[in-house]
Computed example of a mutant assay.
Amino acid sequence: MRTCARLLRAVVTAALVVAVGQIATVEQVASAAPIAARTPSFQSPRTQLPWTTAEPEGVRAPGAALADGITGTVLWSRELNTPVPIASIAKVMTALVAIGAGDLERPITVPPESIAYCVRNDGSSAGLAAGEVLTTHQLLYAMMLPSGCDAAYTLAEAYGPGQDGFIAKMNDTARLFGLGATQFADPSGLPIPADDSTYSTPADLIALAVRAMSLPVFREVAGAATYHLPAGPANREHQWRTTNQLLREYPGTIGIKTGSTDAAGACLLFESVRAGIPLIGVVLHSSPGNGALAKDDAVRMLDWAYDPIVSRLPIG
């Protein structure tokens, strides 16, 4: 699906007016009214921005979208409403359910089954050990940065209670957010019980990302490149590094989550802020499993939107 260039110009130009006029900072936006209550206010620009193409060139992903990071208004998309497997992007919802439960300093014991779950399903691991005790906040880093399926399982077990109870909460939250084309069957997004059991659409994932990134705790975790947990009385030392290459390499990137399974291919849900303008995007199945190609797709989309804007800013 392709959104008309006129809408693209209006939305991004309005964001540019806000950025240059310093009407609001990203931090103020994050603490503003709920998403549903926000209405974009467009102003007619005096000059046209130099858009050279109607869409980003060279994007491989069959499913993709780029949106205004404040309202979620889609600027460009491809297969916007087609549901497909999303792999570990599902962990964004796992984080939201855990954060919504409160008490981020709650101590949680890693169950032995979380390790067996990773091994059995060939899931990515944060290197947790059965029996060690971490807080919810620490487990969020363990889940989001190295994409630890052991951490996701541990959080689900604690906050469900149990896997089934937690998955029900994930789906209840999806319905509450109006994500009608999204379904969760596993807290990690692993292909359990089948390849396509956990799925979503670019449209729903943009809406989920806008919700998630409006929460300071989530933004803090999703935007971290590394996290060091010193050894303590009940835990080993851990050093976690993000799997999000865009966060490490593209200026202005502030999150949020990678994903990869055989069924989902390489996926990336991302947000970047340049010149004060937040953009949220997603690419689904950019390649059979190469995260670098998903990152490249995201770069093409972001450069397409930002370059004509940044080149016109009065920056010395």
Rank of each mutant, 00 (worst) to 15 (best):
R2G: 12
R6Y: 10
L8M: 12
R9D: 14
R9K: 14
A15L: 15
A15W: 03
V18E: 15
A19F: 06
A19V: 04
V20L: 15
A24P: 01
A24L: 12
Q28P: 04
Q28N: 14
S31K: 13
A32H: 13
P34Q: 13
A36F: 10
A37D: 14
A37V: 04
R38P: 05
F42P: 01
S44Q: 14
T47M: 12
T47A: 13
Q48V: 09
L49G: 05
L49C: 03
W51D: 04
T53S: 15
R60C: 06
A65P: 07
L66V: 15
G72E: 12
T73F: 03
L75H: 10
W76P: 05
E79V: 00
L80S: 07
S88C: 05
S88Y: 04
M93R: 03
T94P: 00
T94N: 00
I99V: 13
G102V: 01
D103I: 03
P112D: 13
E113I: 04
I115M: 11
I115S: 05
A116P: 00
C118F: 02
N121W: 14
S124R: 02
G127Y: 02
A130L: 03
A130P: 01
G131S: 03
L134V: 02
L134N: 00
H137Q: 12
A142T: 08
M144G: 00
C149Q: 02
C149G: 15
D150G: 08
A151L: 05
T154M: 00
T154W: 01
A158D: 00
G165D: 00
F166A: 00
I167A: 02
A168G: 12
N171Q: 10
D172F: 01
T173W: 03
R175G: 01
G180R: 14
Q183G: 05
F184I: 07
G189Q: 08
I192G: 03
I192E: 02
P193A: 08
A194D: 14
T201K: 05
L208C: 07
A209C: 12
A212Q: 09
A212M: 09
L215Y: 08
V217E: 15
F218R: 06
F218P: 03
V221K: 06
V221I: 15
A231F: 04
P233Y: 01
P233I: 03
P233E: 14
A234K: 12
H238T: 08
Q239D: 14
N244V: 09
Q245T: 11
Y250V: 07
P251Q: 09
G252W: 08
I256M: 15
A263G: 10
A264M: 10
L268K: 11
E271H: 08
E271D: 06
V273Q: 01
A275L: 08
I277S: 11
V282Q: 07
V282N: 09
V283A: 08
H285P: 04
S286H: 09
S286N: 06
G289L: 11
K295V: 04
R300P: 09
M301E: 08
L302M: 14
L302D: 05
D303L: 04
A305R: 07
Y306I: 05
D307G: 01
I309R: 02
V310P: 03
P314A: 10
G316I: 12
